[in-house]
Design a protein around this nucleic acid. Structure first.
Lengths: 218, 218
DNA sequence: TAGATTGTTAATCGATTAACAATC
DNA sequence: TAGATTGTTAATCGATTAACAATC
């Protein structure tokens, strides 16, 4: 059974990591099997959605039988291509870059920090997860030498475009961008924007909505 | 003209901050007017989408006339209820909590850090944005005294549920949660989950998809 | 067997895009 | 005026939910 399948919906893709985390927690708790109803209830989603999401891949279980937790974890990790370690570099060693470098989860998921870079001399030499901050000019050499494909941008908005171009020239093919600007990258480069302010503002808006009372929400 | 309107679509709400940022940049660059076509091109979205989003509120411009940048900025800030400063607290003063405390953008947007808390004695007393880390036990008093409604959770997954309950009891009505667990909160509390791993995993998946070549993507 | 469960198709719902009249 | 633009309705597209046969 190959994991080669039709392009899966974006909405489904965004949920796979959520399923994986929940299932790993169940596994750690010693739960052997779980039904779509129970799992969906824990994630507070509709069980049809869950089954429909799994349906894009197939082979998760059989009618009448609940899901085997360990099998689901295995399949999801396979689908998400988390079998082999994934190396990545960070550009921008400020607070946010440090937070990502130090975030233990990414390591557990199989992501390995290969390098962290900045232009600020004060930051160069500081160590995170055993990796010392280097001058940004050294990024291309390291990326080329280790064949790193994944780059994280946690620089200022002003510096982000330049850093993105540097990364692309060095051979990076996927950029996780935390700078609140629209980056221009070649078609072949995959871009994932993470715009933290949007989350905060959306939350604040919905809080107001709640204040006005449910009768105003229709 | 009131901003009281029907519940706006979630998809539209998530885009409003993106529009606001782009428009503020244009404003800073001295751009006075902009068409939906130009603005949409800069954000790499369809111009119909932009006009449809604005249509939920009304009064952004008139047929035949382009948008006035300053008016759009004003309206969006009004819609997002960013007129008065919004106070918030952070629970969890690790790297991620520090990053949020120090993130200059939030301040510019009108969000003010009222307090930052942790259980780790080593972190207590450290200052971020002029605010000293305090023991988590002191959170309810401060939240009650200042009437803070917005709380950010950047603790470990294990501690998150307890902290959420502490916040809710203290009077917090909106929680921005960075811990990768499903929090149980009362109906009246607005919850915004920020699951960073999902972004990273989705990016990694799409990079593989790109590698397999566009012909496999249909 | 009887009750519960998945895989899968169909129905519903919501979001995006197209089209165009009214307007500048 | 002629060309361009918005607001708004309609058409399309995609995602969610419901329903149920096949299966345990």
């Amino acid at each position: 059974m190959s994991i080669q399948q039709d392009k899966i919906p974006e909405a489904t893709l965004q949920r796979l990591p959520v399923y994986l985390y929940r299932l790993q927690t169940l596994q750690a708790d010693g739960v052997g099997r779980v039904s779509s109803r129970t799992l969906a209830a824990q994630l507070r989603i509709n069980s049809s959605r869950l089954r429909q999401d799994f349906h894009h891949f197939g082979g998760f279980s059989r009618p009448g039988q609940t899901y085997e937790v360990s099998h689901l974890v295995e399949r999801l990790r396979e689908i998400l291509a988390l079998g082999a370690p994934v190396h990545y570099v960070i550009a921008g060693a400020g607070y946010l870059g440090q937070a990502i470098a130090a975030y233990p989860r990414f390591g557990e998921d199989g992501f390995r920090l290969a390098g962290i870079f900045d232009i600020n001399p004060k930051l160069i030499g500081l160590r995170f997860r055993g990796v010392a901050v280097q001058d940004i000019e050294l990024l291309p050499e390291l990326v080329g030498r280790l064949g790193v494909k994944l780059g994280v941008i946690t620089t200022s908005p002003e510096a982000a475009q330049g850093v993105a171009e540097l990364m692309v020239r060095a051979g990076i093919t996927g950029i996780w961008n935390f700078a609140p600007v629209g980056l221009q990258v070649p078609e072949a480069v995959t871009l994932q924007d993470e715009f933290l302010s949007a989350g905060l503002m959306a939350l604040h808006y919905r809080m107001q909505e709640g204040e006005r009372g449910p009768e105003h929400r229709r």
